[in-house]
Write a protein that binds this DNA or RNA. Structure first.
Length: 485
RNA sequence: GGCGGCAUCGCCAAGUGGUAAGGCAGAGGCCUGCAAAGCCUUUAUCCCCAGUUCGAAUCUGGGUGCCGCCUCCA
């Protein structure tokens, strides 16, 4: 497959160096608050990458860390009167709640920063020994950025450009404004660990170098994260790891694009901030996951509730078609008729295009387009009175369901039993629109009785009433059904 | 100021040299007691200008507009 490598700024052919073993590391969350849509996107993107690599039979080891100690955690813990470790634990468990709903698979290894202090200290020791780092009298340790000649290679910056923007805070003991902290001397009332430089705690960038180094062979295959982590976080990881080991850190650097609100960056300061929970109050989690896959992972993605409603319709349509096909397949007798060759060819086209799309830098948006194509074809066959009873239709539908299982497994959507999912989706929509389900059922029964008596005026009146409630009635061969309009 | 990205139908969105996927919305039709759902048909020459090429949404140069990073951030 082709994968865009931020380091080379091109799509490159991805292959594993070590047989079919692949090591992947993604920067996880800092556990100080609930996850927002941006986290959801990043996690979905790397979840699909992980699923796809496994689908392609790579033997993948995926590491995703938790930052469970840093400035933000300490600050928030003070605000709410918790210990930083308690706060981090709380938000790590909240993370799992959200991610499970979004059908994000667990990483193989989910290391926590505070459980890897010795590894980090060891890494700092190596850097000091190689003159890439220095301790200050107060017990801070800084990375000597100018000692690493390749600094800036990932983010495409050079030292001089960075120099102009860098500042020294009062009281800093840095040799150079560009230097960044590897180890921070302890402050009173803050979590601290013993180290050769006195009590203190690790800097943020250090943990990813230490933990990826511990769990993955270097260079490992894929390092992922949000676009904003490119600089300085990933740049600093590279500086740390490569200066210490003398080996490249990772072969592919993969960055997902940002979620935006009204074409602007989502941030707390702008007040345009949505947590995953905010969304799931109104929408089924699978709708969110689907929505996140309708755009290429490197593009900025504009979030809105209107866009979510559209996504919801898309998901519903796929499942509705699947449900219809499953129903059709219950037929016991099939004619000997085969499908026209053009239909077979068309179907094979969607199938092939799906694979090509995924091969091309994980183009889930295009892949979904081809799934729609396949669904439309399936529906077209079901519309044809002759074809729908044919052996040919049966074979194609069975093949489609089989393919769909694979597609769903990779994308992490459309995995559910269609009828069950449609029920859940309807409940979710009914809740969002404040629809009283019991009342709807009662009206529906009344309408059915009227219809049985051929009292269509009354039946239509009831339907009109349902319509004002926001409910649309569907008459099917198996009775009346309803959905949120 | 430096670095980078983006601009495709009413909206969302694929498409990196060979003649514009798909979704949502709209229109007409089939189906239906009437509807809904579904299916069929239908709606673009790709921000502007110049250039390269037999051929460009796709490459080059210039312009305009928007966004991101450079400070914690998925």
């Amino acid at each position: 497959m082709k994968l865009y490598n931020s380091m080379s700024r091109t799509k490159e052919e991805f292959n594993a160096l070590n047989g079919n073993k692949v090591g992947m590391y993604a920067c996880g969350i800092t556990a100080y608050d609930l996850c927002h849509i941006g986290h959801a996107r990043s996690c979905v993107v790397f979840d699909v990458l992980l699923r796809y690599l496994r689908f392609k039979s790579y033997e993948l080891t995926f590491v995703r860390n938790f930052t469970d100690i840093d400035d933000k955690i300490i600050k928030r813990a003070k605000e709410v009167g918790m210990k930083p470790s308690e706060l981090a634990e709380k938000f790590i468990s909240e993370f799992y709640v959200d991610m499970d709903k979004l059908n994000i698979l667990r990483a193989d290894i989910e290391p926590k920063c505070t459980e890897h202090i010795p590894e980090m200290i060891e890494l700092v020791n190596q850097l000091i020994a190689k003159n890439h780092a220095y301790a200050t009298p107060s017990g801070d340790v800084y990375y000597r950025v100018r000692s690493f000649s390749e600094y800036g290679k990932l983010s495409g910056r050079n030292i001089e450009e960075l120099q102009s923007g860098a500042r020294i805070e009062p009281g800093d003991e840095k040799e150079d404004p560009l230097d960044f902290a590897l180890w921070k001397a302890a402050k009173p009332d803050e979590p601290q660990w013993d180290s050769p430089w006195g009590k203190g705690r690790p800097g943020w960038h250090l943990e990813c170098s230490a933990m990826s180094g511990k769990y993955l062979d270097q260079p490992f295959d894929i390092h992922g994260g949000g676009q904003d982590l490119t600089f300085p976080h990933h740049e600093n990881e590279i500086a740390q790891t490569e200066a210490a080991t003398g080996k490249p850190m990772a072969r592919f650097w993969v960055h997902n694009g940002f979620v935006q609100i009204n074409a602007e960056k989502m941030s707390k300061s702008l007040g345009n901030f949505f947590t995953i929970r905010d969304i799931l109050e109104k929408f089924h989690p699978e709708v969110l996951r689907y929505f996140l896959l309708t755009m290429h992972y490197r593009s900025p993605l504009n979030f809105s509730f209107e866009a979510m409603e559209e996504a919801e319709k898309g998901v519903r349509r796929i499942y509705a078609t699947l449900a219809q096909i499953k129903l059709e397949l219950e037929r016991s007798k099939w004619s000997n008729m085969e499908l026209p060759d053009e239909m077979i060819t068309e179907y094979q086209g969607y199938r092939a295009q799906w694979a090509l799309s995924m091969e091309d830098d994980l183009n889930t948006a295009a892949a979904l387009g081809h799934i729609f194509g396949a669904m439309r074809l399936a529906g077209r066959i079901a519309e044809d009175k002759q074809l729908k009873k044919s052996q040919g239709a049966k074979n194609l539908w069975a093949l489609l369901l089989e393919d769909m299982t694979r597609w769903a497994q990779v994308l992490g959507v459309f995995e559910r039993e269609p009828s069950e999912f449609l029920q859940e989706l309807r409940s979710s929509r009914a809740m969002r629109k404040d629809i009283d389900v019991d009342k709807v059922e009662a009206l529906l029964t009344a309408r059915q009785e009227a219809r049985k008596a051929k009292d269509f005026d009354k039946a239509d009146a009831v339907r009109a009433e349902l319509s004002t409630l926001g409910v649309e009635v569907k008459d099917t061969p198996n009775g009346a059904d309803w959905d949120v309009g």
